[in-house]
Write a protein that binds this DNA or RNA. Sequence first.
DNA 1: ACTTGTATCAAACAGTTGTATGAATCGTCA
DNA 2: TGACGATTCATACAACTGTTTGATACAAGT
Lengths: 211, 211
Amino acid sequence: MSVSSESESTRDRLLEVAGRIFARRGFKAATIREICEQAGANLASVNYHFRDKDGLYAEVLASTIRRALERYPADGGVSRRAPVTERLEGVIRSFLQRTLGLDEPEWKGCLMARELAEPSGALPKIIQEVARPVHDLLLEMVAELAPERNEEERWLCVQSIIAQCHFFRHAEAVLEVLRPQWAELSKQDRIERLSGHITQFTLRGLGGVHG
Amino acid sequence: MSVSSESESTRDRLLEVAGRIFARRGFKAATIREICEQAGANLASVNYHFRDKDGLYAEVLASTIRRALERYPADGGVSRRAPVTERLEGVIRSFLQRTLGLDEPEWKGCLMARELAEPSGALPKIIQEVARPVHDLLLEMVAELAPERNEEERWLCVQSIIAQCHFFRHAEAVLEVLRPQWAELSKQDRIERLSGHITQFTLRGLGGVHG
DNA sequence: ACTTGTATCAAACAGTTGTATGAATCGTCA
DNA sequence: TGACGATTCATACAACTGTTTGATACAAGT
């Protein structure tokens, strides 16, 4: 009944289900029994396919990163020769797509957020493959938009951008209470409004646009 | 050896130690045995003083909120009649003090961050007592600073402020890797630079200050 | 038909978990 | 002193955890 698709291999079903459950419960509270049950697989299948629980988690994280980045690349698919404001919005929009999820199952961003709060040894991999590229891209853009500031100030500005992108995933539960109207919007709408707002707020914050 | 202070009551030591451990490991992964051991208390003492593990967690959260708010009130102790820029910086600085911790044990903000990602039934209490007041305060200030924007835009700006304040606690582990120099600063210094930066970035972002 | 490698299965294992119990200890006040 | 309530203690228990095992099924190749 809870088997997602008969045609997928046991291994794939385990990855899919495990991702959802790790995201919902956290690593420790997620149990292999529940994962196998929902995947319609035998209890021993996790150990067979992924050695142990840690192996499963690592593989879930790795495949999630891989697929998220190939669908929404760090630069948002915007050309390097486009105006900096467009490139900035590209990075922001792509970031939001990855964290808030659009057509990807929505637990993926949640997995990342959880990993940040509760590092599991897989954190260096995430930093290397996701955080670092985004960080460096933004640093270039900020240098272009606010060349008069010193290095630390520019770095702080980059953090302000990333902070805004992260927040709406991170505090979803609170936002629903404080502003119910927001939860009623479609994901598409939310991402659209957010990337617009964050880009504008940031451009003003950097002092490049008045308005 | 790991007993914090002999003069405190068992109940208080349990609260203190439990806070640290819940923050570090999360609710599920934290064990009563480890808590009692570090508190120099008997295994049964949690059940005696707090009924069960949930009772302990709820009490930890409640007392943490209470003490954090009485030391760092939502308005940062700035007079209601002070200029809005000063009031804004007050809210931001106080927020950072609560999350990044100054003289309070540093796990307290971490507890909150964890609660946001992994609500435990205690979330409504946090919203009611912490998030809501800060949210409303900021909403007033933004309305004052950017009266020309519509209600949703102002709300988004409030979220941008809160996002920046939260982020530096939330992504501590990543920041340490991406910018080791930052980790070398004292807490005092970090909070000082952050509240300055966030206030400036926000004031520009709101379009109230140019340059 | 026989072998081989892959995959699945039910069952059991040892370790850890939160909680309960009843005896022992302490402090306080009559 | 003696009694009583509050607290601490060692110990036990049942439930749940990740992992292992050995049997079994299946497909492909010879």
